[in-house]
């Protein structure tokens, strides 16, 4: 999924096939429909200047889509950094790093502090603070427009996720993820757990990048309602008993 979205951006950059043009902060679908990163737009507003019209419209489109429907799917289905951190996470499992040592833990709330901080800093310095250092943008822009030394930043995040902190960047630090977690509290698409079918293998909690959103496993039927769940669907994939599935919030848990 990420690769195909990336491919569309790359095609637009290097050929005349302009299906999706721009980058993750702003792009045009088929040259008409604007998409903008609402968090970037918010930072621009925080600097005290008024964003362009298509930025506001594009930001609203994306905001409404994630807030009402998709939830935090940006993180797991669109963000290119997810490929990096997922590879780190997979390698981490393979090397059994978590079993050798007591895992490092820091608060998952740091990202919310970072989110608030980025808006304050945008106000003070008059430019979008997270956009100025965002590893997500560095990676995505790097792939489309050229990296500079940006790949070092990406490498650093890979190594942190691999050796230092499990899912360190996406799960603890990234304010963009925090923003999407924040707005996707009420979105419709949700993961559902059915206790009856569960055999308590806990594979889902091992693979989950945000395992604290799965407190109900083996205990009771429930929808995963935390905004921090990014609907990646890996739990569905690893579950051998079909006890996890995509569902809609509107459906009752028991059905």
């Amino acid at each position: 999924m990420q690769l195909s979205i990336l491919l569309l951006y790359i095609l637009a950059r290097h050929t005349d096939l302009d299906i999706l043009k721009g980058d993750l902060t702003f792009s045009e679908l088929l040259g008409v429909i604007p998409f903008a990163d609402p968090y970037a737009v918010l930072q621009i507003i925080a600097t005290g200047s008024i964003p362009g019209k298509s930025l506001i419209i594009g930001g609203l489109i994306i905001l409404l889509f994630y807030a009402l429907i998709g939830g935090r799917v940006f993180c797991s289905w669109v963000c290119p950094m997810n490929i990096v951190t997922d590879s780190a996470s997979a390698l981490r499992r393979k090397l059994k790093i978590d079993q050798d040592d007591k895992p490092t833990r820091i608060s998952r709330k740091i990202r919310y502090w970072a989110l608030g901080l980025s808006l304050i800093l945008s106000l003070i310095f008059g430019l979008a603070a997270f956009e100025s250092i965002s590893p997500v943008s560095i990676l995505h822009r790097g792939i489309i427009y050229g990296f500079g030394y940006g790949w070092l930043v990406v490498l650093a995040i890979f190594l942190i996720d691999l050796f230092v902190l499990k899912n360190g960047f996406c799960g603890n630090l990234c304010p963009l993820g925090a923003f999407y977690a924040f707005i996707s509290k009420f979105s419709v698409v949700r993961i559902k757990h059915i206790k009856e079918k569960c055999n308590l293998c806990m594979d889902c909690r091992v693979i989950c990048p945000e395992p604290h959103v799965l407190p109900m496993i083996g205990k009771h039927d429930a929808l995963v309602l935390s905004g921090e769940c990014n609907n990646c669907g890996r739990c569905i994939e690893v579950c051998k008993d079909d006890s996890m599935m995509f569902s809609l919030r509107t459906k009752s848990v028991n059905k």
Partner: peptide, 30 residues
């Protein structure tokens, strides 16, 4: 403050004049 760093101007430039700031070239990112 206003630039959203999308690079559409860079893509629009027919002479490849414009570049986006990337880490290491000492200019505001993107």
């Amino acid at each position: 403050a206003k630039c959203v760093r999308c690079g559409l101007c860079v893509q629009a430039c027919p002479y490849d004049t414009l570049k986006l700031g990337s880490p290491g070239d000492d200019r505001p990112l993107g």
